[in-house]
Design a protein around this nucleic acid. Structure first.
Length: 197
DNA sequence: GGAGCGATGTCCT
DNA sequence: GGACATCGCTCCG
């Protein structure tokens, strides 16, 4: 079993860590099975400097994880039915975060399809292309995973480096927000067909 | 393949 | 009360 990425990986500002995360592999141990997907799309949220960030308003019960140390999962519930997963970055007290928006599924596709309520042979694009979809496909929920340390050895949720080298990266405005809607903080692997939309 | 829209819980701007 | 870092379904072309 590969070691998870270390805490230092997440210590830098959100734009930096978001680019650095593209191509890395999100791994979830779910009922003895390994589910894995390559991060192909993510967005940076720049804390107190960013009106679109959940942490812009200051520390609350919901966003407390973002104010903690880097390398922890911030999972929240949105629109009454979906979970979204972020990773805290920057030193403790600076509430930067990265929203994971799409994965390229690598391992455990049949289990992901089942968790998504789809047939085992479903189009893999429907499994993990979108922030709500990827959480459902990997069984990531707020009660189970909010506040989980992604750097702990054998953590059931972690990020690994499999040696993949990101080629070109595209930057574009973030999806689904109203404030700071034109800031180019959405990053994706160029040409990857699992990028959302 | 795109625009429009309803579903639904949690948290406060 | 209202907003919300979404998704999947219609209806139309």
């Amino acid at each position: 079993m590969k070691a998870p990425l270390p805490r230092e990986f997440y210590l830098d500002p959100p734009e930096v860590v978001t680019r650095r995360l593209l191509g890395k592999v999100l791994v979830r141990r779910h009922e003895g099975r390994r589910l894995a997907g390559r991060i192909v799309e993510a967005e940076a949220y720049c804390g107190l400097d960013d009106p679109a960030s959940h942490s812009f308003i200051g520390k609350t019960a919901r966003n407390a994880v973002l104010f903690g140390p880097p390398g922890f999962a911030y999972v929240y519930f949105i629109y009454g039915m979906h979970f979204c997963m972020n990773i805290s970055c920057e030193p403790e007290g600076q509430p930067g975060g990265i929203l994971l928006r799409a994965l390229e599924p690598l391992e455990g596709l049949a289990t992901m399809a089942a968790l998504r309520g789809l047939p085992a042979n479903a189009n893999p694009r429907l499994l993990t292309s979108g922030p709500g979809r990827l959480c459902e496909a990997l069984g990531i929920t707020r009660p189970l995973h909010n506040g989980m340390d992604l750097t702990r050895p054998r953590s059931e949720l972690r990020i690994e480096d499999d040696g993949f080298i990101a080629d070109a990266i595209d930057a574009s405005p973030r999806i689904g927000i109203r404030k700071a809607a034109d800031w180019p903080l959405r990053f994706a692997l160029s040409g990857n067909r699992f990028v959302s939309r």
